[in-house]
Design a protein around this nucleic acid. Structure first.
Lengths: 207, 207
DNA sequence: GTCTATAGGAGGATAGAC
DNA sequence: GTCTATCCTCCTATAGAC
């Protein structure tokens, strides 16, 4: 709807977008802390500070709510990967990607998507914004993986797809939470430990 | 209740135990395939072939049902670890433990316990059979970890607790499922790939 | 101990006023 | 677009007969 006062419309649109971003951030934290199934829409509404019915004016279902949060994180991931210097060593970029994921987990902003079959998975698979992001991220990581294997900094015997899955799996690695719960290490130490076990493995390496 | 016919009581007790084991096995598979939240008691009853109310005569709640399955798996794990030769190299025992876990996952018998807070976690924490098993397994693995580090076959710079958590995390590693879904590898190859990434890491090692 | 039938409650989604 | 109040489905758990 166009009115004579364009500013007013723009302002309203901004308010709307700001509210939706607040909703997405709340959903993001809830998804990270308790997961999709345990998160209730009542809870989201309470945390955002609006009525449940108002939520449903913005997002048609709980799945769409969660999908919006997942897309938001996916876009942040894409932005981070795009910010990495193109001339950097592919192995360094892969390490940076894992470290970024760990950082997101430590601040409670990495939504844990259910690896088991769930209504959320179906919603994500038919969400083109999410799938496009996922494919772009996978292509970028896949390129670095093959480049790193070509220059023998990444184990060339591993299928690239297995490496990719292993990297993705860091996003739902429970080791981080366990180590944080133990309270024995700083966040930096935890990231370092997970990075070492991921890239160097558990076995001792000849010095 | 003691009757004159001891055989009859024993037979009834055996039937009871057999039924409970059937229930536990069903719960085990359901926990592995869909997780605690998604599993419904109706479903369990239907798969076992008895009425839901009968289930509740055996187990007082859904949490107890799942806990019984978890205890069962824990006992199988203890039995496997006990079967390993005491004179074997500690590193070999650790590898065997991880391989055993992978095998259980591949046949769909590794229940996925929610890493997030859930009513099941509380039930398990106050289940002494489960906790005792967990502590005994952790002690055994912990001993092997320290021994392997002492003889420099396991990276001595890693805290033992971080290694232990990393091993436990293999039980809910989604890489296995992803690789299996891709259909590109046999079960043996998948186990091999996960073992390599776990113990050798992603980085290339000098030959 | 097994069944059928149902209570009880949580949670996703909607109606309708403003 | 926001609210209050409500619907409706699903699921855990139990009552009560046999």
């Amino acid at each position: 709807m166009v009115t004579r006062n364009g500013t007013r419309v723009s302002f309203k649109a901004q308010m709307l977008q700001a509210r939706e971003e607040a909703i997405i951030q709340t959903v993001n934290h809830l998804l990270a802390s308790k997961g999709f199934e345990a998160m209730t829409v009542d809870e989201v509404a309470a945390d955002v500070g609006i009525a449940k019915a108002s939520l449903y004016k913005h997002f048609p279902s709980k799945e769409d709510l969660a999908a919006a949060a997942m897309v938001s994180v996916m876009h942040r991931a894409q932005a981070f990967l795009d910010s990495l210097p193109p001339e950097a060593a592919p192995m360094d970029n892969l390490r940076a990607a894992v470290a970024w994921t760990m950082g997101l987990k430590l601040v409670g902003e990495m939504p844990s998507l259910p690896s088991q079959n769930s209504s959320l998975r179906a919603a994500l698979m038919s969400n083109s914004a999410y799938m496009d992001g996922l494919i772009e991220v996978s292509d970028k990581l896949g390129g670095w993986i093959e480049a790193a294997q070509a220059q023998d900094s990444l184990n060339p015997k591993l299928p690239a797809i297995a490496v990719l899955y292993t990297l993705y799996a860091r996003a739902c690695d429970p080791v981080l939470e366990f180590l944080k719960m133990s309270g024995l290490h700083t966040d930096e130490e935890i990231v370092s430990l997970v990075m070492i076990t991921c890239f160097e493995g558990l076995s001792a390496r000849p010095t």
